[in-house]
């Protein structure tokens, strides 16, 4: 068993609120796919490194809402009623990833970099 688990050290936490603006309107479907990809990538990265996922959660705040949640296995998806028909020029993302076995710095770098890569379509970060 790895050292971190026997020592019971705390997990690394990445937790942020970001407001994204899009140059052109983006469908909710595209936002959802990007975020699902992000959750998958953090899960896969953790698995590759033999880290343990505490949980990964996303809440999208706009006119409509999307909630993604995972413990590193399947991803659960819930959304508000009008989500599927929505197109956005701006969204606020609340994201949290809690991972055991790595440092806050490394997790933050990976999570930020992957998030940027998942939103590689005319996106501006406001905050």
């Amino acid at each position: 068993m790895s050292e971190w688990s026997t020592k019971h050290s705390g997990p690394a936490i990445f937790s942020e609120t970001q407001t994204l603006g899009f140059l052109e309107k983006v469908t909710s479907e595209k936002i959802q796919q990007s975020l699902i990809l992000w959750v998958k990538e953090i899960s896969d990265w953790s698995k590759d490194k033999a880290y343990l996922v505490g949980h990964i959660k996303v809440f999208v705040e706009g006119l409509e809402n999307l909630w993604l949640s995972s413990t590193g296995r399947s991803i659960n998806i819930k959304h508000s009623q009008g989500w599927s028909e929505w197109t956005a020029d701006m969204v606020t993302l609340n994201v949290t990833a809690i991972v055991f076995g790595t440092s806050k710095k490394v997790l933050e770098e990976v999570a930020q970099e992957r998030l940027k890569a998942c939103f590689n379509f005319g996106t501006e970060l406001y905050k």
Partner: peptide, 9 residues
């Protein structure tokens, strides 16, 4: 935990 609450939302 973390700066951003999600479950509360």
């Amino acid at each position: 935990v973390g700066e951003t609450g999600i479950d509360d939302k």
